[in-house]
Design a protein around this nucleic acid. Structure first.
Length: 290
DNA sequence: ATGACTGGTGTGACCAGA
């Protein structure tokens, strides 16, 4: 078979090319790094969906939000069996964030933001993976607004903004990814006029998001799709998914060192149509290796 | 505009989500 293959010029060329590709693969195993974010809305209740999606799309790094599980109820064994290492910051009933990585070491840098109280909700975890800093966040919802919950959202945003300022200027690639609970512009809401009073879309919220971006961050998905309606969340109510009545609230912010490596990205919208699914869709980007 | 779903908790006319 091989002899016959190399008996022709075409066959020989094919053989050489295959050999070179193989060498290339061996020396540069990760030309593309795929990073995903997924607000699972309960990591244990969502486990079959999460594992199915991991198997289907095989991201290299995954940021999860809304684990809704205490620290000792994180399904580590199932995640390991799927081929992923994990660090997580759990909490009883609500919140909770995790970072998963396939075939790479995860070095935890911090959990919680500078200035958080000791008993603050589990909304931020940060790690270094393969020379890249990854901050996984679950920003407070803030409703009803105005009120103490909205004040808490803006306070959290302020602490996050200060931390982001430290990271954006680093000479390392940095991504701040997760559920921001912000629709940055009218293009990110199916019906903007209905949401102007909502904590996810109020002028103060959008202004807070803009202050972070203006530090020098790149909103990866909006950069890839400058004009398109693209949603990452659909309410369980009123057949929102079927009507495409969605919101874009899950974001990747890339610092300048990383933004130049952005190649592709998309929402795994179909996952929202699965049985027992989250109200959020997984979202992912692909980065060229430096 | 309202209430419609869902997960977690642990049976609460519960809470919170977005």
């Amino acid at each position: 078979m091989i002899n016959r293959c190399f008996n022709t010029k075409k066959g020989l060329l094919f053989g050489i090319l295959s050999f070179l590709l193989e060498i290339h693969e061996l020396n540069f195993p990760k030309l593309i790094m795929k990073i995903a974010t997924y607000n699972v809305n309960g990591v244990n209740g969502r486990l079959p969906v999460l594992l199915r999606w991991l198997e289907e799309t095989k991201p290299d790094v995954v940021c999860l939000q809304e684990l809704k599980a205490p620290q000792d109820k994180f399904p580590l064994q199932a995640i390991n069996d799927a081929g992923y290492e994990a660090i997580w910051h759990g909490q009883k009933s609500w919140n909770g964030v995790a970072i998963l990585a396939r075939g790479m070491e995860i070095q935890e840098l911090r959990r919680g933001l500078p200035g958080d109280d000791d008993d603050s909700p589990s909304r931020y975890i940060e790690a270094s993976i393969n020379g890249m800093v990854i901050g996984c966040l679950y920003l407070p919802n803030g409703n009803p607004a105005p009120g103490p919950k909205f004040d808490y959202k803006l306070d959290w945003f302020e602490r996050f903004t200060l931390h982001a300022k430290q990271l954006v200027e680093m000479n390392l690639p940095v991504v701040l990814v997760g559920d921001y609970n912000v629709m940055p512009t009218e293009l990110d809401v199916y019906k903007p006029e209905r949401w102007v009073e909502d904590a996810l879309f109020r002028p103060e919220t959008r202004a807070a998001f803009k202050r972070v971006v203006d530090q020098g961050w790149t909103d990866a998905i909006r950069t890839l799709y400058p004009e398109e309606k693209i949603y990452t969340f659909y309410d369980y109510f009123r057949n929102a998914y079927g009507r495409d009545a969605g919101l874009r609230i899950d974001h990747f912010l890339l610092n300048p060192a990383l933004a130049k490596r952005l190649k592709r990205g998309a929402v795994d919208r179909h996952v929202r149509g699965w049985e027992k699914t989250s109200d959020h869709c997984p979202v992912w980007i692909e980065l060229m290796e430096a």
